[in-house]
Write a protein that binds this DNA or RNA. Structure first.
Length: 587
DNA sequence: CGGTTTTGACCAGCGC
DNA sequence: GCGCTGGTCAAAACCG
């Protein structure tokens, strides 16, 4: 075995399921089935690397799932080898993937696989099982479960053990008559030791079988989930295409405004914010307090809600104390605040909320209400609702966290919007001038109908993006220079103005709620607003469609950042192809 | 009766 | 260390 390599090589002969072939990665080469199913695995790991029983690996690709079962060999190479000695034959299907996904990086191992202790990888001297340093194992990708295969291997081993046991017993009978034969005794002891070893090995295989069974079941469920997600994604691919076009138009416009300077690469390298919410966020009673997930999407009332917010926090972010220098946990938290005109006590955003607190915030006589999502137990999403101190008709709703449960369509629109805004903020939450432009661009991308309705702020402790639905989305406004459309109080960006001086145009009618289909006020309020909306110029269909498409795309892809990165990448083209490293293995 | 709201208490972070 | 503030908790009250 070449211990210096960095790849896993597996060769499999036998029936290959069409499903596997459909989902296989490009690095999987399948050939027609030939002999009995055999999987040949080579482990080019460095000698000091540890074997694990990677029952759980972060990657979720289908081919990866198949590979997960390769941990079978970790426990008992001897048994497999003895089995293979009797079975013979090797592979036709070649699976060749990069090692880091499975073995080279121990960080991929979430667990140790059900209690089986890790052990040091056998040295080259111990790799005598196969001349090539590889390990063979019977496998079938379609007709049999891994549990069945392990059962078969175990059964074969048992047969060998029984055979040897019979041999030992026969020898014992023969040797009883010659008690003085010391040589016979030695042989008997050796055979007994062999028998004990076989029994021990069988016990290991028994344990292995149970683990494989459970692992197989878990992976089966995972595969079903992935297949479902993939189908769902395909259904939305056409809509996502529209988003790409919208983004392309935005990029072109921005490039013109900025003298042809393309958007910075940093924007494409979506950071932790790119990781979308997962039910595995394992929401506890208050998860966001102890260790907020990287994608934690927070929100914060804007300056009108809490004057201390900007005066105390934003202004004190000096260029010497940049957001980069701030604690990482701080930058991981983003807050999305939505300003909408509503007389209702709370916007009907499609989710069920439970009020858990109310406070009178400083500088605002209107109480601030705290709500927690109750659509699922342990959902970490919370929101605050407070009326604007300057204009009581404006209801400021801010969202925090990511839902750990499916959302109704009405809630999905809002969730998509806030997620997009948070992704915009987090992916652009940097201190360089490029970073400011990134946020600017992202804001206009996420909300192409009215770039002036998005305000990005990195004010500590949480960066904030405010979506102002109270402004006139007149497309003419978007003809202003982008620098005048957005306010970026990033400390070192050189563009620090009065923090969070959102160009509110209070008293205007809410006409751009179409940007948030499903984000409605209460029915009575919506009815009350309807005549006003009719009196206003309608949102140009193209813009509304663009927003709708963006929302749909975001909704279809739980990892908005990845989708956004892919879209931007396709827009910018080959001449500007930043690496999108994080988007491939995230599901 | 279960879920929600109310409301005072409590806690942590931050600035002085 | 102290006070202020935002945010959360939890018991009691309320509601359908």
């Amino acid at each position: 075995m070449d211990a210096s390599g960095g790849r896993i090589e597996a060769r499999v002969a036998g029936p290959v399921s069409p499903d596997v072939g459909a989902d296989a990665q490009p690095d999987v080469i399948a050939t027609p089935p030939t002999t009995s199913p055999v999987l040949l695995i080579a482990f080019p790991l460095s000698p000091d690397q540890e074997f694990g029983t990677a029952a759980h690996v972060s990657s979720a690709s289908v081919s990866s799932l198949l590979f997960l079962q390769l941990n079978l060999h970790f426990v008992s190479c001897d048994s497999i080898q003895s089995y293979m000695d009797r079975r013979g034959g090797a592979g036709a299907l070649t699976l060749d993937t990069s090692a880091p996904l499975f073995l080279a990086s121990s960080s991929n191992y979430v667990g140790s696989g059900g209690g089986v202790p890790k052990r040091k990888r056998p040295t080259d001297s111990s790799d005598h099982h196969l001349g090539t340093g590889a390990i063979e194992f019977p496998i079938s990708l379609s007709t049999r479960s891994h549990a069945e295969m392990a059962e078969e291997a175990l059964g074969g081993n048992r047969a060998v053990a029984d055979e040897k046991k019979n041999t030992i017993e026969t020898s014992m009978v023969e040797q009883v008559d010659d008690e003085d034969d010391k040589e016979g005794r030695n042989e008997l002891a050796a055979m007994q030791a062999e028998l004990a070893r076989m029994n021990e090995e069988n016990q290991k295989l028994t344990v292995l079988l149970s683990q494989v069974t459970s692992s197989y079941s878990a992976l089966e469920m995972r595969l079903a989930t992935l297949t479902r997600q993939r189908n769902q994604r395909n259904d939305e691919s056409s809509k996502a295409h529209e988003v790409v076009e919208v983004m392309g138009a935005k990029v072109d416009a921005m490039n013109r405004d900025h003298g042809g300077v393309i958007f910075p690469r940093r924007f494409m390298e979506l950071g932790p914010a790119a990781e979308e919410d997962e039910p595995s966020n394992s929401s506890t009673a208050s998860p966001e307090r102890s260790s907020p997930p990287p994608d934690n999407l927070l929100y914060k009332d804007d300056e009108n809600l809490d004057p201390s917010w900007n005066t105390n926090k934003a202004l004190e972010l000096t260029p010497t104390k940049t957001a980069e220098q701030a604690p990482e946990a701080t930058m991981r938290k983003a807050r999305v605040s939505v300003r909408a005109r509503s007389e209702a006590p709370m916007l009907a955003d499609g989710c069920r909320w439970r009020k858990y607190g109310q406070k009178i915030a400083k500088g605002n006589p209107c109480p601030r209400a705290y709500y927690r999502c109750t659509m699922a137990t342990g959902c970490p999403v919370r929101k605050q609702v407070q009326r604007c101190a300057d204009d009581r008709s404006i209801l400021i709703t801010t969202y925090e966290g990511n839902h750990n449960h499916p959302l109704p369509p009405a809630a999905m629109a809002m969730k998509s919007t806030t997620s997009a805004a948070a992704s915009m903020l987090l992916s652009g939450s940097m201190t360089s001038a490029n970073g400011l432009m990134s946020s600017n661009f992202l804001a206009s991308t996420v909300l192409p109908c009215s770039s002036s309705m998005a305000t990005v702020s990195a004010a500590a402790p949480f960066p904030t993006v405010t979506l102002d639905l109270t402004q006139d989305p007149n497309p003419l406004l978007s003809q202003r220079p982008p620098a005048a459309q957005f306010h970026f109080p990033f400390p070192s960006g050189g563009a620090l103005t009065q923090p969070r001086s959102l160009p509110h145009v209070h008293g205007q009618k809410l006409v751009n709620q179409s940007a948030f289909s499903g984000f409605q006020t209460s029915p009575q309020i919506a009815a009350a607003q309807l005549p006003q909306q009719r009196a206003q110029p309608a949102v140009p269909p193209s813009l509304a469609e663009a927003v709708s498409a963006a929302t749909a795309a975001i909704t279809s892809d739980p990892n908005f950042a990845a989708a956004l990165a892919a879209a931007i990448k396709s827009v910018i083209g080959a001449g500007h192809q930043p690496p999108v490293n994080n988007s491939d293995n995230i599901l």
